[in-house]
Write a protein that binds this DNA or RNA. Structure first.
Lengths: 221, 221
DNA sequence: AGGAGTATTTTGACTACTCAAAAATAGCGG
DNA sequence: CCGCTATTTTTGAGTAGTCAAAATACTCCT
């Protein structure tokens, strides 16, 4: 049985490698993401490599093995189902569910997860639009355009928000930029690094490139 | 922030001291209840004493301090609310909820616990009839009679089942001895150490004294 | 009171995780 | 190809929890 620390490392490696596909994940990246000292990551990674969960070449980064990826997928599934459960069934604010799920994902049994899945109608995405791996650990990662790369002056729908900080999520909620919301990108300024968005209620919001890149959109319906 | 191990020790000391009021809890008792080696308990207890959560006199047992008791009460509250939530909201079998709650009680935030409490209508007992401490850690422990000490040939109602093993709980369910069930104690044999109970459906069940003492009853309604 | 037997504590060691700080390495600019 | 900087790894040490087995203390019986 993997410890919850091991689960955290694997999940972290999975999401980091999804964020930049093709590249190996560096120990520094992991240290930052998990808020631990760099040396801690190195020794942990060596332990994971010994257990066959990652492949590791010193100074060149880490990659999940098939077994490690499967485990990480299950943790991710638990995390995202719990998030959705908290929002849909328990009425928790979507800006708070990430932190709650971070703890619960290590404590909830597979039976309970399946019960949640059933209660929620076998959903495919969590409250942030992140796809939920199925019970066999399969996941298709849709590649949607972000507010930085999408066409202008076209009706669009938010499908995913890839920033889990409560502050960002509260902003998104306030400005009508949650998954499902409709919007139009009014303009972009390369020089200023801003994107001006018109939400469904007609209000205009200006976002920096970093923030804009965290919001993914698709054609309405 | 106490670790989940500390929470387990405190909760264990609390329930053991409730089971035999007045007596100090021995390290051996704790070791058995938590399935750890006796020496482990001794060193853990010394750490708890240093943190001011228990008072400890070598060879004479342990007692919770006010602070330790408060903490233990909160853990017990979490545990029992989670059990009820799992049964009422998620439809989990009552014989399984104890084990689930054992893990979840360390991972659920206070906010979520309060949300559960609200959803369940501020309940006073869990699915086994165990009383739920309130948000301030207060608890009244009703002293009901068990099937060993109650009157014979009188209509009674099960109010509490004080054995959390799945096997026992499944038996109780099968034989109609869950909290709320009505029954009559038909006879008792001191010599054989058995109690014969007639459940609501008319079936008779014979229980050993140990099992009978685990089922508490009160007058119907 | 003297043992015998049981419960408890001590000892020494191990796993899992962590950090700070020193040492090693990679990759770049010249 | 040499040196500089940033990153990574190593080293040494500490915390939390655990066990097996030896040592100690209690208790009860004769």
């Amino acid at each position: 049985m993997p410890t919850s620390t091991v689960e955290d490392y694997l999940k972290c490696i999975l999401v980091e490698s999804q964020a930049s596909p093709g590249a190996r994940v560096t120990t520094g990246q992991i240290a930052t993401a998990l808020s631990v000292a760099p040396g801690t990551v190195t020794s942990m990674i060596k332990a994971l490599a010994k257990s066959g969960l990652v492949s590791y070449e010193p100074y060149s980064g880490v990659e999940l093995t098939r077994e490690g990826r499967e485990l990480a997928m299950h943790v991710l599934r638990r995390h995202r189902l719990i998030e959705l459960f908290l929002v849909e069934v328990m009425g928790v604010d979507w800006s708070e569910v990430h932190a709650e799920a971070e703890l619960l994902e290590h404590a909830v049994s597979d039976r309970l997860i399946d019960r949640m899945d059933e209660m929620l109608g076998r959903p495919s995405v969590d409250p942030h639009g992140d796809p939920i791996p199925d019970a066999r650990g399969r996941l298709e990662e849709p590649d949607a355009a972000s507010l930085v790369g999408c066409p202008l002056a076209r009706a669009l729908r938010v499908v995913r928000v890839t920033d889990q900080t409560p502050e960002f999520l509260q902003l998104a909620e306030r400005e009508g930029l949650m998954p499902g919301s409709e919007l139009v990108v009014a303009s972009r300024s390369e020089a200023a690094g801003t994107v001006v968005v018109e939400a469904a209620d007609g209000r205009q919001v200006s976002l920096g490139y970093r923030a804009a890149s965290r919001i993914q959109v698709a054609a309405p319906e």
